[in-house]
């Protein structure tokens, strides 16, 4: 049994980077008991999981914990996130998950707080397992696409049977019996579903937080149904329902980070902004990789060639793929650097920029949808800022200057979304300034030349 890692000097970590890793995603199990039809990991182009052990060995986990502690010491981290992931991490059992969290906490220097979560499909959650996780200070994030069987029709097991009954049971168990361990819900946007109905069904599961993830896709393998502004409209409809609720019913990461970025505050999401990315993955065989979402681009996109037995995480910081995600605007396409939404959009999710033969130096395949969404949120913020304070007075310093052509009523992009009959856009803040036909409206698209030579791996 070794003690906390000694503090030794490391490479520079100033504002110019490299920025140390602070989020460590540990693949506890490389397989999944579900076979979701849209899974980018098992249905995507990268099949590297087939050649790896199903579960991480004790040796891999011990070495990983040691490397995390070494990195925390070298960079004097005060906080780090330990994400126990998969596949389905609970296939490894709750005990091993708790043990890894405990071991990392043992090894990091005093004063470094370890925030541990497990991301699960919830089908294997039981009262006993949740008690083990909660006692170990491991919070539980759940992946679900809505709060009904219909919303989760694509989340099936290997025999094609719906996962919803078991997942719903697990999710309700967390909400009712272990609310302090409930981290939140991750939902992949399905634009064929009613946005407001989907959101409200998720509220029924009483999550403390929620995030809405655009399905992984890129210019060479576009996401499903990427026509018009379906994804942007879908997000706008949910935003209006959330914004006008009269109280904050749930934290919605994408929405709140967009507000933060619009107001010039620091933000925390891969989906938006220019913050340097600081997450790293350890696979079940000990390989150090970039995050799984890159595997949706092409086989080997996440590979670094490093492993925890022979390499430190500092060596991974020097990998060109990692460096590109910490380079801010330098790794963006020219179109993005010239875009007025740059500091908010940040080029969108890195994986969504890929184009075969041209790497990642492209705008997001969701460019138009992101523009639609960001301008919509800006218009709602602008309207709110022009309103009165809670004591009835107008708010000095709350006037907004500059163009407000937020596109919030662009033809062909109704806020309610194609399938919605829900109560969208009914609150006082939803009567935003009438936009011009937004820049992303039909008929105003232009074709940009493709920037070549942007590959990073």
């Amino acid at each position: 049994m070794t003690g906390p890692a000694p503090v030794v000097p490391g490479p520079r970590t100033g504002p110019e980077g490299p920025f140390p890793f602070r989020q460590f995603i540990v693949k506890m199990h490389g397989r999944c008991n579900l076979a979701c039809t849209y899974c980018y990991l098992y249905e995507g182009p990268d099949n590297s999981w087939r050649d790896r052990p199903a579960a991480a060995s004790a040796a891999v986990l011990e070495r990983t914990a040691t490397r995390i502690a070494e990195h925390a010491a070298r960079h004097a981290l005060r906080d780090l996130a330990l994400v126990l992931h998969g596949g389905e991490p609970l296939l490894a059992g709750a005990g091993p998950l708790a043990a890894v969290a405990g071991r990392v906490r043992e090894l990091v220097p005093p004063g470094c707080q370890v925030h541990a979560t497990v991301q699960t499909n919830a089908t294997l959650l039981t009262e006993e397992r949740l008690a083990v996780l909660a006692d170990a200070g491991v919070r539980v994030g759940i992946s679900l696409d809505g709060g009904t069987a219909a919303h989760n029709r694509r989340r099936v097991d290997h025999a094609g049977r719906p996962s919803w009954p078991a997942a719903a049971r697990g999710a309700r168990l967390v909400a009712e019996r272990f609310p302090e361990a409930y981290a939140g819900l991750l939902t992949v946007v399905d634009p064929t579903l009613d946005p407001v109905e989907t959101y409200e069904s998720l509220l029924d599961l009483r999550p403390p937080a929620l995030d809405l993830l655009l399905p992984h896709g890129n210019w060479s393998s576009p996401p499903p149904g990427l026509t018009g502004l379906r994804y942007g409209d879908w997000l706008c409809a949910v935003f209006d329902r959330w914004w006008a609720a009269g109280r904050r019913e749930v934290r919605v990461r994408l929405f709140e980070e967009c507000v933060a970025l619009l107001l010039g505050l620091p933000a925390a999401t891969e989906a938006l902004g220019l913050a340097p990315f600081d997450a790293v993955v350890v696979e079940t065989d000990g390989s150090i990789e970039q995050v799984d979402s890159l595997k949706s681009a092409y086989p080997g996109a996440a590979r670094t060639g490093l492993d925890v037995f022979r390499h430190s995480f500092d060596e991974a910081l020097r990998h060109p793929g990692v460096a590109a995600r910490q380079a801010g605007t330098a790794s963006l396409a020219g179109q993005c650097r010239a875009c007025p939404l740059l500091r908010v959009c940040g080029g969108g999710h890195y994986a969504h920029r890929y184009r075969a033969g041209h790497g990642f130096r492209n705008p997001s395949v969701y460019c138009a949808d992101l523009q639609r969404f960001i301008r919509h949120v800006a218009s709602r913020l602008t309207a709110a800022a022009s309103a009165r304070t809670s004591d009835g007075s107008s708010a000095p310093g709350s006037s907004v200057t500059g163009p407000v052509s937020a596109g919030s009523s662009a033809p062909g992009s109704s806020v309610a979304g194609p399938a919605s009959a829900g109560p969208t856009a009914t609150g006082p803040a939803s009567a935003g300034p009438a936009g011009s036909a937004g820049p992303a409206s039909a008929g105003s698209a232009s074709t940009w030349p493709v920037a070549a030579g942007g590959g990073v791996s």
């Binding site: 981290a183 995030d211 507000v259 913050a275 600081d278």
Partner: peptide, 14 residues
């Protein structure tokens, strides 16, 4: 905008 008058880091999108 005056934020007081007008409302705010893990980035891995767990």
């Amino acid at each position: 905008l005056d934020l007081a008058r007008l409302l705010l880091l893990w980035g891995f999108d767990s």
